[in-house]
Amino acid sequence: MPDIVDIAVSNDSFTTLVTAVKAANLVDTLKSPGPFTVFAPTDEAFAKLPPGTVQTLVQNIPQLSRILTYHVAAGKYTQAELEQLGEVASVEGSVIPIRSFDGSFEVKNASVVAADIEADNGIIHVLDTVILMG
């Protein structure tokens, strides 16, 4: 089975995410056995950010890593498990709340476009919005 990075690279909708992960030198981490739960924002999600945000982050790798690691949780959590937990701790340290409105699966203020994509070293949930701490 492909690992998390392989799945992301092979998918056209994660080009920004892959670029960012490479820039932040997180490729090796995400290739490690893990397991990880990755909340992967699509290209459209990054595009929704106001102008300049990504530029500043790319200029400052440690800060970029911090935002990216907020999208990763240690351990492998399926949608059902997450909904039951209600929240999960990110690798960044801050908590990611899991919300649901009318039965939809939402991670913080992002809607999950595709849930439970299994990878060799974890699981991916695809988000339509970049989530931020706070």
Binding site: P50, T53, Q55, L57, Q59, N60, P62, Q63
Partner: peptide, 12 residues
Amino acid sequence: LVNGIFAIAGRP
């Protein structure tokens, strides 16, 4: 101002 806040949010 909102755009400015987002643009600079990641400033170290």
